[in-house]
């Protein structure tokens, strides 16, 4: 994920925390947050995934005036859907792995830059979905002073066919 300007805003943190079912007031109440060790509203551990909102080219967001592969009048808005959709940190297919290293707490008011670094690609034969192509991406999140806040490493997997589901008992 690349983002030149990723403002970490309190309202966004509140919505993100809600969406993962976390009512901890450190994500929403500045008065409470002041009394904690962190001293301010901080972001939940996986919050930087929402840098997608600030990546102008992020391919899993509909763009004005461009075809979108989700349903409308027809089950898909484009003639040929990408195999298995997209997703995750690895640039396509399903999300296989995600890793974070935290160098300091991320606080509301920080302004991040997300810089993607090149990662590896490898293949494997899967039992439930045919050939698997894995691709890794490393993203450095730096603050307004250029200080490294979080290092993220995502692995995406592109499958040959949809993942087979085990029969329900």
């Amino acid at each position: 994920m690349a983002a030149k300007h990723f403002p970490v805003e309190a309202g966004h943190i509140l919505m993100f925390a809600r969406s993962v079912g976390d009512p901890n007031p450190i994500y929403s109440d500045p008065d409470y947050a002041k009394t904690t060790e962190a001293g301010a509203v901080i972001a939940p551990p996986t919050f930087v995934q929402s840098s997608a909102q600030f990546d102008p080219d992020y391919f899993l967001r509909p763009k004005i005036g461009q075809p979108w592969f989700g349903s409308g009048k027809n089950p898909t808005g484009i003639t040929r859907a990408p195999g298995g959709g997209g997703g995750g940190g690895g640039g396509g297919g399903l999300h296989a792995e995600q890793h974070y290293e935290y160098h300091r707490p991320l606080r509301a008011g920080d302004v991040l830059t997300a810089t993607p670094l090149p990662g590896k690609t490898w293949e494997k034969e899967g039992k439930r979905s045919g050939k698997l192509v894995f691709s890794e991406s490393v993203t450095e999140y730096r603050d307004q002073n250029g200080e490294l806040v979080i290092t993220a490493r995502g692995v995406g997997v592109r499958t040959e066919r949809p993942v087979e589901q085990p029969a329900k008992a």
Partner: peptide, 25 residues
């Protein structure tokens, strides 16, 4: 997947405390 990771992150921060994680993968 990131929703599951996010929800699991709540279990972790409730256990270890806020702003205490150094790694999570």
């Amino acid at each position: 997947g990131m929703l599951t990771m996010g929800m699991t992150g709540k279990m972790l921060t409730d256990y270890v405390g806020d702003a205490r994680l150094t790694k999570y993968g």
